[in-house]
Simulated assay, not measured.
Amino acid sequence: MSRFLMCSRSDGTTKSYMHSFNRWRKFILQHGHSDIPAQPVHIALYITHLLDNGASYSSVNSAIYSIKWMHEISGHVDPTENSFVKSLQESSKRLTGKPVKRKDPVDSETLQTLCETYKDSTDLLVLRNLTMILIGFAGFLRYDELSSLKCKDVTIESDYLKITIQRSKTDQLREGSEVLISKGFSCACPYSMFLRFLSQAKIDLSSDHFIFKPIFRSSGIAKLIYKNKKLSYTAARQNIVSMLKKVAPHLNIGLHSLRSGGATAAANLGVNERCLQRHGRWKSISSKNIYVKDSIKYRLQVSQKLGL
Rank of each mutant, 00 (worst) to 15 (best):
T96G: 07
S121G: 12
D153M: 03
W69P: 11
G139F: 01
A44V: 09
L130E: 03
K103M: 08
L95P: 15
V60E: 09
V85W: 01
A138M: 00
T80G: 03
S62W: 04
K150C: 03
T155I: 02
S59L: 10
I47R: 02
K152D: 01
I47T: 05
F140D: 04
L146I: 11
Y65I: 12
N53K: 12
I135R: 00
L124C: 04
E116W: 09
S168W: 09
Q166C: 05
L149D: 03
T96C: 08
L111Y: 03
S62T: 15
C151Q: 03
S92D: 02
I135S: 01
S92Y: 02
R174N: 15
S62L: 09
N129G: 01
C115Q: 06
S168P: 15
R167H: 08
S147Y: 05
K93A: 09
L95K: 15
T155C: 01
S59R: 13
N129W: 00
L130A: 02
Q166Y: 07
S74Q: 12
T96Y: 09
D171A: 14
S92A: 09
I73Y: 03
S56K: 14
S87C: 10
A44M: 06
D120C: 10
I73M: 04
D78R: 15
K101Q: 06
Q112L: 11
K98F: 07
I156V: 02
L127W: 00
S121Y: 08
S83I: 14
D153P: 00
S58E: 15
K101W: 04
G97L: 05
Q112D: 05
V100M: 07
F84E: 13
I165R: 01
Y57T: 15
I165C: 02
K68H: 13
I64L: 03
P79G: 06
I163V: 04
D123E: 13
E145Y: 05
M132H: 07
D107H: 11
S121T: 12
E81W: 10
L45C: 06
K169M: 08
V85Q: 03
I165K: 01
Q166A: 07
G176F: 08
E109A: 07
K93V: 15
R128G: 01
V126G: 00
L161V: 00
Q89I: 09
I64F: 02
D52Y: 11
Q112N: 11
N53W: 08
V60C: 15
F137Q: 02
G136M: 00
F140K: 10
L130N: 03
L149F: 05
D52N: 15
Y143T: 11
Q112P: 07
M70I: 12
K150T: 10
D171F: 10
R142T: 06
E175W: 13
D144K: 12
K68C: 12
K103D: 08
L50A: 10
D123M: 10
I67Q: 09
L51V: 14
V154Q: 01
L149E: 02
V126Y: 00
L125N: 05
R94H: 11
E157K: 14
